[in-house]
Amino acid sequence: MRLLRTDKLKLVEFQGQDIPPYAILSHTWGEEEVTFEDVLLGHAKSRKGYQKVAGACSQAIRDGFEYIWIDTCCIDKSSSAELSEAINSMFRWYGDAEVCYAFLSDVEDDEDPWTWSSTFRTSRWFTRGWTLQELIAPGVVYFYSAGWKEIGSRDTLLNLIVSITKISPDYFETGDLSQFSAAQKMSWAANRETTRPEDNAYCLLGLFDINLPLLYGEGGRAFQRLQEEILLQTEDDSLFAHNHQDCCSPAGRRNQLRR
């Protein structure tokens, strides 16, 4: 696992049991994100996404963390093997983090998130496929607005988050995914979108404790492979009660079971 030093913007690799305590960032991608190559070449500060990285590092430093994991720059995406390992490990990485910072770039500073007209309620962060696991996997989640103002924690905002996401509040009490059927977990992904159709499936791997090889270019076949793997590991045929045509992205709303 590769982590970013919060004080020096330097990438450090760790193996096995040597991974130190770390914070982790959840966000939606924007223009000119800071990449792995940008950090290696010292170009990070020239990217528009640098302020987001700097804000996350500053918050981690205030919280006493020497390291943080950020998906845009901690994964060498030029390596298909590393990208596959990272996506298959991501749910665990979010779960192992000491704290997750959910940065909502479209939420205004100092607003009341509970008001019906709040930008928190309509944030893009709640519509993306990947942020589902980033909401439920960590033990601790804090939300931040565009100016890195703390909005609240997942615990203090729980009723509002449940209202927005339709995730069962029972999950947040137990943290036990095994108590929920495949159909229930699929329903949590309803109306969430991913940029690539394959990610409709890949972003759900952790929810079902499934590992899959990544085959970008296969389109909807990725979700069919996910379903097949779930059925190999469980007798929970509720999977078909919640058709994926209602889940994730416009492309994903087509019937993925059609062969």
Results as ranks from 00 to 15, higher is better:
91 F>Y: 15
21 P>H: 11
42 G>V: 10
138 P>L: 08
47 R>K: 15
129 G>S: 03
41 L>F: 05
37 E>N: 13
56 A>G: 08
107 V>T: 08
103 F>Y: 15
50 Y>Q: 08
140 V>F: 10
138 P>R: 08
45 K>M: 11
101 Y>R: 04
70 I>K: 01
65 F>Y: 15
139 G>T: 14
130 W>F: 10
120 F>M: 08
17 Q>W: 09
96 D>M: 10
69 W>D: 00
69 W>A: 03
110 D>I: 09
83 L>R: 05
57 C>L: 14
111 E>D: 09
58 S>C: 13
101 Y>V: 08
85 E>Q: 10
44 A>D: 07
88 N>Q: 07
19 I>Q: 08
139 G>Q: 14
26 S>I: 07
143 F>M: 13
52 K>S: 02
42 G>R: 04
137 A>P: 10
140 V>L: 11
128 R>C: 04
129 G>K: 02
132 L>Q: 09
91 F>C: 07
60 A>T: 11
108 E>W: 06
105 S>P: 05
44 A>H: 09
89 S>I: 03
110 D>E: 14
28 T>S: 11
122 T>A: 11
81 A>G: 01
112 D>W: 07
14 F>W: 08
119 T>Y: 02
118 S>I: 14
111 E>A: 09
97 A>N: 03
67 Y>R: 07
36 F>K: 02
35 T>N: 06
85 E>Y: 01
16 G>W: 12
124 R>E: 07
39 V>Q: 02
88 N>Y: 01
21 P>L: 13
34 V>Y: 00
12 V>Q: 13
21 P>M: 04
133 Q>T: 10
90 M>F: 02
102 A>Q: 05
30 G>C: 09
140 V>D: 13
125 W>P: 13
83 L>C: 02
13 E>N: 15
99 V>G: 01
73 C>Q: 01
134 E>M: 09
98 E>W: 01
110 D>G: 08
25 L>G: 02
89 S>V: 04
14 F>T: 11
107 V>I: 11
61 I>N: 05
51 Q>L: 15
75 I>T: 06
78 S>M: 12
128 R>G: 03
93 W>Q: 03
21 P>G: 08
72 T>H: 05
19 I>M: 11
104 L>N: 00
76 D>Q: 04
50 Y>S: 06
96 D>I: 01
138 P>D: 03
122 T>N: 12
91 F>T: 07
137 A>S: 11
139 G>N: 15
76 D>V: 11
75 I>H: 00
25 L>P: 06
134 E>Y: 06
113 P>I: 05
66 E>W: 01
48 K>D: 10
61 I>G: 02
75 I>D: 00
60 A>V: 08
57 C>G: 12
106 D>C: 10
38 D>R: 03
107 V>W: 02
72 T>D: 04
99 V>E: 03
53 V>W: 00
27 H>E: 10
26 S>D: 04
142 Y>H: 15
135 L>T: 05
60 A>S: 15
96 D>S: 15
63 D>N: 13
40 L>E: 15
12 V>E: 14
40 L>S: 09
113 P>S: 04
134 E>R: 07
111 E>Q: 13
42 G>H: 05
139 G>H: 15
56 A>F: 07
122 T>C: 07
97 A>S: 15
